[in-house]
């Protein structure tokens, strides 16, 4: 991760770099955590493993959602549309075309990316709140279309037969590894995208889209990239959820609740950082596990917490940490290091 990229300038007097030794150590530590988590199903019981599937799928979704809102300024309230499409694409590939469900997840992601193209051409004509409503409308249209297909059981949904046949000993660890992979993919894609040239453009768009465009950024194309990544990512997660739950229903797969969770997670954790959704997902998950048995109090606690955080630190919990320490687990800022002999 110590990408001490030499500036491609004549008479260079400095290098541009984004990470330091601490970040390298954290990177290695992170890798160890991922390895430990990957081995989790071998030593933990099924109930705990299943719970972590929920956790990682939410983390992946939050990360993709954050990429779209935090960097491209796309307030999508319609990611459940892609989750639903992913779930049903999985059914199509595994039950109708008889492809292994775990491989069908890849096709589901491709399906999400394909849907994202025409959706983008509609949605990108809108801005801000209108864009949010537009994405929701598209998700509802997709839900209504799917709910009216007899083959998939209409509104009552359908069981993924291929996933049932896998048996618990294969299905639970398998969906766990896919869930973990989806979270790692979401973080890795966001990290490397943001460190690329497109990432710099995305950050400029976040600050001021008109100014970014007048500096030569192709606004439409850059937003399209993130929208396609978001669509493919959410469809991938939708497919994993379908394997995990064995059953898909339009009302659940296309539920607006998905987006509700994602908004809560991102707002609490901090929009526009990679760390924010991680923190947000952990907080949401801990709250859910500890307070959901108290019924409606669970929602009251979530709501109060969201209010407190937005008032106390609009940039979220991680935004507060950055303001106090300027420390990034995933460094994205391009920094300068002066070479010897150059004046500081």
């Amino acid at each position: 991760m110590t990408a001490a990229k030499a500036a491609t300038l004549e008479n260079k007097r400095f290098t541009v770099w984004v990470a330091n030794r601490t970040n390298l150590a954290i990177g290695i530590f992170g890798l160890l955590i991922v390895v430990a988590l990957a081995l989790f199903p071998t030593y933990a019981g099924t109930p705990l493993t299943r719970r972590l599937v929920d956790f990682f799928t939410l983390l992946a979704l939050a990360q993709f959602w954050n990429l779209m809102l935090g960097y491209a300024g796309l307030i999508s309230v319609g990611q459940q549309g892609f989750i639903g499409i992913g779930s049903y694409t999985l059914w199509l590939f595994s039950d109708i075309m008889h492809i292994n469900p775990f491989i069908s997840v890849i096709f589901a992601a491709i399906g999400g990316a394909i849907i994202a193209f025409p959706a983008a051409s509609l949605v990108f004509k809108l801005k801000g709140g209108y864009l949010a409503i537009g994405t929701w409308v598209i998700a509802e249209i997709l839900r209504l279309i799917v709910a009216n297909i007899k083959r998939t059981g209409g509104g009552s949904g359908i069981t993924i037969q291929a996933a049932t046949k896998l048996g618990t000993t294969v299905r639970v660890p398998g969906s766990y590894w896919w869930a973990l992979a989806s979270a790692v993919i979401a973080i890795a894609v966001t990290y490397f995208l943001l460190r690329s040239r497109t990432g710099l453009a995305l950050k400029a768009i976040r600050d001021n889209d008109l100014a970014a465009e007048s500096n030569g950024v192709n606004l439409w194309r850059t937003k399209l990239y993130t929208y396609i990544i978001g669509g493919a990512g959410c469809a991938m997660v939708g497919a994993i959820v379908a394997i995990h739950l064995l059953r898909v229903q339009p009302a659940a797969a296309f539920s607006i609740n998905w987006t509700g969770y994602l908004i809560f997670i991102s707002v609490i954790g901090g929009v526009g950082t990679i760390e924010g959704p991680i923190i947000g997902t952990i907080i949401y998950f801990v709250l859910r596990e500890t307070t959901s048995k108290y019924g409606e109090w669970y929602f009251i606690v979530l709501g109060i917490l969201a209010i407190i955080v937005t008032v106390w630190s609009p940039a979220g919990i991680y935004g507060y940490v950055v303001r106090k320490t300027n420390f990034f687990l995933f460094p994205l800022q391009r920094k300068l290091r002066m070479l010897e002999g150059a004046k500081e």
Binding site: R197, L200, D207, S214
Partner: peptide
């Protein structure tokens, strides 16, 4: 001016060279 407030001075310049 419309500089990008969250980007550093150097990053602002790099955006200018985007094309």
């Amino acid at each position: 001016r419309r500089v990008f407030p969250s980007l550093t001075v150097h990053e602002n310049l790099l955006i200018g060279a985007y094309r």
